[in-house]
Amino acid sequence: MNMKTHIIKNLIFVGLLGFLLSSCQDKYFEDSGIHDAVYDGTVMDYIKNRPDVFDSLNTIIQLSGLESVLDQEGVTFFAPGDPSIRKALYELNENLFAIGRDTVLTLDQVDPSVWREYLSMYIYNDTYVLKDIPQLDTLNMNIFPGQGFISYGGQNMNIGVNYNDVISENSSGQKQVVKYAGYRQLFLSYILDISNVGSFGSIINAPVASSDIRTTNGVIHALEYRRHTFGFSSANFINSAYSKGIIYK
């Protein structure tokens, strides 16, 4: 495969990426969320019925063989939006192109075990809504550490609720801060170093945009796609995809 062909493939991928990103509805991901509090269907039913934001997610669920897990009774799913998945693929393609390999054009070119490994980080047995989760302060985890959880795939994770500050100005123009009095936002965090949680760079945070979407078998928390890349660590995802082997057709 020559360099010209590589460039053409990357242009095609970027074009597809742009189309998919433009099709997503930004209002769905505003903090505090715009959604029905209760959905009359399972977690998977909800994902399938929101192709505007979860089309690629539905595809990798099928590829990973995790649909039955998300249909079981009592499940919590932190749903990564399609743009988060596309960002991970874009970075994978940047890496492949840099080493002279053909790039990925379709989701099924990544080994299914890779999708399963990383998608399992977002799935939890039992049902957890925002009010069930303790406070998290990512800058002061010794006091407000959130709570450690083991994901469906056996990964050490942290889930916590960030209490934002209320910031205002008085009549004299002086800034006033009321600590922890603002809106509450759920976070799912990947623990990089379990022995040193709370130190700088020890966790990667993924904020939730819309929380507590209740289904007939569990709950969905939709992650904020602007601040999250699927798999949390692009380097880990790239290494896994590369080591398992890209499926070329």
Rank of each mutant, 00 (worst) to 15 (best):
G153H: 00
F144K: 04
T216C: 07
S234P: 02
I204Q: 13
P112Q: 09
S210M: 13
N140F: 07
Y183I: 12
H221G: 07
A235E: 15
M121I: 10
N162T: 10
Y225D: 08
A235G: 13
D165N: 13
S233T: 12
Y180P: 00
D193K: 14
R227A: 15
G148Q: 06
Y122F: 03
I238H: 01
P112H: 07
K175W: 03
G173L: 05
S210C: 11
T127E: 11
N142G: 14
S189D: 14
Y124R: 07
G148M: 10
G198S: 02
Y118C: 05
S172E: 13
G154Y: 05
I194Y: 05
Y128M: 15
V178M: 06
K175S: 12
D193C: 11
A235Y: 14
E169M: 11
Y124S: 06
F237E: 02
T229P: 10
A206R: 04
I133N: 01
T127P: 05
K131D: 14
F149L: 13
I133E: 06
S243L: 11
R184L: 07
I123C: 04
S189I: 09
S195F: 09
W115M: 05
P207S: 09
S243I: 11
P112Y: 06
R226K: 15
S234I: 14
T229C: 13
A222P: 01
A222S: 12
D137G: 09
A241K: 05
N196V: 02
S113D: 15
L188C: 03
Y180C: 03
P145S: 04
I194S: 14
E224T: 12
V129F: 12
T215Q: 08
E169R: 15
K244V: 00
N170E: 12
V161N: 02
S240T: 06
S168L: 07
V208P: 00
G198F: 02
N205Y: 12
I191Y: 13
V177S: 07
G198M: 07
S234K: 12
L136R: 01
Y163W: 13
E117A: 11
I203Y: 04
V219G: 05
D126E: 15
N140E: 07
N158V: 06
N158P: 01
Y128G: 06
Q185D: 08
G182Q: 04
R116L: 05
N170I: 13
V219R: 02
L119E: 00
A206W: 06
E169A: 15
N239C: 11
G148D: 04
I143L: 10
E169V: 12
G146M: 04
I159P: 00
V219C: 06
L223R: 01
I203W: 00
